[in-house]
């Protein structure tokens, strides 16, 4: 128990730094795509430090307790989401036997909480811009809910024939989605991956799905009234979410470790270094997912309208993910019955 708490504490701090660094990498890569040099890699960290010094202003029209508690709830729940996804994987890498398995259904709920907290804070701020932003955020949340659920269910479906609990995160590592998949399974997996990658920017509020914070329309929308420490919390929430969501894509689709892929292990002075190398490999996978799923998409597209987004997710992406699910169900190698 104490060990888990200690690991959680360390991982929160490490996750904070890595999340901010991930945002820095994102900005740097986006700048390179746009033929710029871009800010220093640690710019998000400097932003947080600066905001911590700044005065926090709470508007008179706001519901004070709700307005100031919403970012804290968002931060706590996003940290929880990160830990909940990551700890089983860390245990798996370090080959620690534990009863802690993690549950995909809980992940599905945890993804929602930071956004819901932000929406609550925005509604309580009393600003019309924030209210419009919050409405849009709710619309986006509702439209992406079904694709995420379908993706998670399909991944669980294929693991159902194994002995392990299909909805446990840890069983994903033993039976990755591509595990003895046939042609249908591979095709379905690709479709599901495509759907999940397009859901990422919507969940993270990035162009083309950043209607809730649209700068030129709503002047940062849901976070328009936040300043100082509360804004810093929002930025930290964003960093945690960035790391957690790319981590989720990694464990859903690419949970392979180096030793699984190539059967190699690293030794030095008689101690095994394999887990640490695996963590570096994991970070590499996260950066690749993030820079393709979020950075690349956000530089090549314009912001869509909220009606277009709702249509896009409710029809196109939902259809794609359901087709993926059906394909996986049709794959004879993955049949349970």
């Amino acid at each position: 128990m104490i060990m888990i708490l200690a690991i959680a504490l360390i991982m929160t701090i490490v996750g904070l730094i890595l999340g901010l660094l991930l945002k820095g990498i994102d900005r740097k890569i986006a700048a390179y795509f746009q033929s710029r040099i871009g800010p220093p890699l640690l710019q998000p960290v400097y932003d947080i430090i600066k905001l911590m010094y700044k005065q926090t202003i709470i508007p008179v029209t706001a519901v004070r307790w709700l307005f100031s508690s919403a970012p804290v709830i968002a931060l706590a729940s996003s940290a929880l989401l990160l830990l909940y996804i990551t700890i089983p994987y860390i245990f798996y890498i370090f080959e620690i036997n534990t009863t802690l398995q993690g549950d995909l259904i809980v992940v599905l709920y945890c993804i929602l909480i930071p956004s819901i907290a932000m929406v609550t804070g925005a509604f309580s701020s009393g600003s019309p811009y924030a209210a419009i932003g919050a409405q849009r955020e709710m619309v986006i949340l509702m439209s992406i809910e079904l694709p995420i659920a379908v993706v998670i269910i399909s991944v669980a479906w294929h693991a159902a024939d194994s002995m392990a609990d299909p909805f446990a995160i840890s069983s994903l590592f033993e039976y990755p989605l591509w595990h003895n998949a046939g042609a249908f399974g591979v095709l379905g997996g690709i479709l599901l991956f495509f759907a999940m990658v397009l859901v990422l920017p919507a969940e993270m509020s990035r162009v083309p799905f950043d209607q809730a914070e649209a700068e030129t329309e709503l002047a940062e929308g849901i976070s328009v009234e936040y300043s100082g420490k509360l804004l810093a919390f929002i930025l930290l929430t964003d960093a945690f979410k960035a790391l957690a969501l790319s981590m989720l894509v990694v464990i859903l689709f690419f949970p392979y470790t180096l030793s699984q892929l190539f059967g190699i292990s690293f030794q030095m002075y008689g101690h095994t270094l394999t887990p640490f190398v695996e963590i570096v490999f994991l970070l590499f996978k996260i950066i690749v997912i993030y820079s393709f799923g979020i950075t690349f998409i956000r530089v090549v597209m314009a912001r869509l309208k909220i009606s277009q987004v709702a249509r896009f997710f409710l029809f196109a992406i939902t259809a794609i993910s359901i087709i993926g699910l059906i394909l996986i169900m049709l794959d004879p190698n993955m049949r349970i019955i």
Partner: peptide, 16 residues
């Protein structure tokens, strides 16, 4: 116009 619709890459490109 590109910046107004959130297309910052085009904004950077044309100004470049």
């Amino acid at each position: 116009a590109a910046h107004e619709i959130g297309f910052d890459t085009l904004f950077m490109y044309t100004w470049n």
